[in-house]
């Protein structure tokens, strides 16, 4: 499935990936931009590097911040950097590794459930059937709003521990 395409890391490009993996997501600093899945490819020729990045949401305001961070990090390590923004394949939360999901949970954000393809009808609910609270693991939770503090999160409330929390939206 196209959605599961993962970037190719070679022995040659691994040092660049390692540097990029140290850059935190500006909105969810618990995970790196590599773990987030927005770095799609790294091509290296000598000290010249081309980094392909993709936005999470079309209008994600953090993309520019991430581009600047990539430039700064790689330039500081002696690379000549060119960033290309790609739209295909479209970013999906299915690219988050299990490790990244565990980090999100530890940070207090419920990780995204697996994407299920549904028919498109405005009256169909788009709530995932089970969302567990990142604090107490209760599934007695309810959606407050599909739109949270950033484009990629929804607001939930846990009736188990009476805490509001955020869900990293399935996308």
């Amino acid at each position: 499935m196209e959605a599961n395409i993962q970037p190719r890391i070679t022995d040659e490009t691994r040092p660049v990936w390692t540097l990029l993996d140290q850059i935190p997501d500006p909105e969810v600093p618990a995970i790196s931009i590599v773990e987030l899945g927005v770095i799609r490819d790294v091509q290296l020729s000598g000290k010249q590097v081309v980094v392909e990045m993709t936005p999470t949401y079309s209008g994600c305001p953090a993309l520019k911040t991430m581009e600047d961070a990539v430039l700064a990090e790689l330039q500081a390590n002696g690379y000549e950097v060119n960033i290309r923004i790609v739209y295909k394949p479209a970013w999906t939360t299915d690219w988050l590794s299990e490790g990244a999901k565990a980090k999100l949970k530890a940070y207090g954000i419920a990780p995204p459930p697996r994407l299920t393809v549904k028919r498109f009808h405005p009256l169909d609910s788009d709530e995932p059937s089970r969302v567990s609270c990142p604090f107490c693991d209760s599934v007695d939770t309810k959606l407050t709003s599909q739109f949270g503090s950033t484009a990629c999160k929804a607001l939930y409330f846990c009736d188990g521990c009476r805490q509001p929390f955020e869900l990293f939206k399935c996308h």
Binding site: P55, Y57, S58, V86, Y87, K88, P89, A90, W91, F120, P122, L123, D124, S125, D126, Q146, F147, H171
Partner: peptide
Amino acid sequence: ETISGVAQKAWKELQYHARHTGQWIV
């Protein structure tokens, strides 16, 4: 290629816009 790339993201986003606004109308 560009249009299909933009469309992949727009399709995901517009579906929940339609759901959110449609459900408010109801």
